[in-house]
Amino acid sequence: MASAAPQTEWQQGEWQLDLGAWAPKAKTAGLDSSSKWNFNGGLGYALSDKWALRYDYHGLKTKMDDFKTTGNEHEVNLAYSLGKNAAVFAGWNRIGNKFDNSLKGFKDTTNNVAQLGLATKFDLAKNLAFYADGAVGTKKTSLWEAGLAYTINNDWDLNAGYRYLDTKLDEDNNIKYRGFLVGLSYRFGGHKAAPAPAPIPAPEPVAPVVETPAVPQHVYNDYYVDSIHFASDVDTPLASESQKLQNFVAVAKAHPDSTFKLIGNTDSDASQAYNEDLSKRRVENVAKYAEDNGVSGSRLNLNYKGENTPVASNATEQGKADNRRVDIWEHK
Rank of each mutant, 00 (worst) to 15 (best):
P203V: 02
R324A: 10
A290W: 04
K332P: 02
A290L: 11
N303H: 13
I95C: 03
A90Y: 08
Q272F: 00
D322C: 07
F99H: 06
A273E: 15
G13R: 08
A26Q: 05
Y220Q: 14
D327E: 13
D269W: 13
R54Y: 12
D56C: 03
P213K: 09
N72G: 09
S296Q: 03
N97C: 05
E145I: 01
A29G: 15
D222E: 14
N308H: 13
K168H: 14
A239L: 13
K168N: 15
T62Y: 03
S258W: 01
S33D: 09
P201F: 05
P310H: 05
N275I: 13
L184Q: 03
L238E: 13
S33Q: 06
K107F: 11
V249R: 05
L158M: 12
S227G: 05
P213G: 15
T109F: 04
L47Y: 03
A46Y: 07
Q318G: 06
H229V: 11
V76M: 15
S81A: 10
T141L: 00
W144G: 11
L169D: 05
Y304A: 15
V225L: 12
V295F: 00
E145F: 01
K244M: 08
K63S: 07
N323M: 09
V311Q: 08
F260N: 03
A312Y: 07
G41M: 00
G41L: 00
L300G: 05
K50C: 02
Y224V: 14
K36V: 05
G96L: 05
L184D: 04
A207I: 03
G13H: 05
